[in-house]
């Protein structure tokens, strides 16, 4: 799918992937998430746990919410906290919060006891976002993170992303809208032979 695509990213910075529809932004993220094996080449995460593959130190926030309608909102989140292994990294310091704190942060604390089936699309999206907060992992891979969110939730999301960067985390996100992130690198995907511009990091 991609040719000659290489980039590196330092702790505390974000990579924003842009490009036309169908150019492969999602595929790139899924490759980074280890869900699609790269045909050749490698993905490395330096400074993390050496024996853990990169995808197990990353959160993937994709188009699907992974919310079970039959479980309550809190049960959904509690499961992901218990199930997902946290990945501590030296340059990254964020303590994971409890499910209820995370729900309150995103403004859906009052729904904690309700079945997730009663949530609207935007609320499900926010519930899915809470997942990134309850387990601490240094890398966030976010595919169109602002879709289905209203303006207020979008601001909250930006605050969370900036806090994650400030703590030394990494973010790779594919998006169409402008995100006011602290430290951004652009990666613009183009069709045909000029496949992609190699992007160098700006910070040490």
């Amino acid at each position: 799918m991609f040719e000659d695509l290489s980039f590196s990213l330092n702790g505390g910075s974000a990579l924003v992937v842009t490009g036309a529809n169908g150019i492969g932004k999602s595929s790139l993220l899924r490759t980074l998430a280890g869900l699609v094996p790269p045909s050749h080449g490698s993905i490395r995460l330096e400074g993390g746990a050496a024996d853990t593959p990169p995808e197990e130190q990353a959160h993937y926030f994709g188009h699907q919410d992974a919310v079970k309608p039959a479980l309550s909102v809190e049960e959904n989140l509690q499961f992901w906290q218990n199930f997902t292994a946290p990945a501590p990294a030296p340059g990254f310091s964020v303590r994971s919060v409890t499910p209820l704190e995370a729900l309150d942060t995103l403004g859906i604390g009052h729904t904690a006891q309700l079945p997730a089936a009663f949530l609207s699309a935007g609320q499900k999206r926010r519930l899915s976002l809470c997942r990134l907060l309850v387990t601490s992992r240094p890398v966030w891979l976010m595919d169109e993170p602002t879709s289905a969110l209203d303006r207020r939730s979008e601001t909250q999301l930006l605050e969370l992303m900036n806090a994650h960067l400030a703590a030394g985390g990494l973010i790779v996100t594919a998006t169409h809208s402008d995100l006011a992130l602290a430290d951004v690198l652009q990666l613009h995907l183009q069709a045909a032979d000029a496949a992609a511009l190699p992007v160098e990091d700006a910070l040490p």
């Binding site: 699907q64 079970k68 292994a85």
Partner: peptide, 13 residues
């Protein structure tokens, strides 16, 4: 169908 499987593959279990 709801993306849970992707997350399970990445969960480190």
């Amino acid at each position: 169908d709801d993306g849970t499987l992707d997350l399970m593959l990445m969960a480190g279990r």
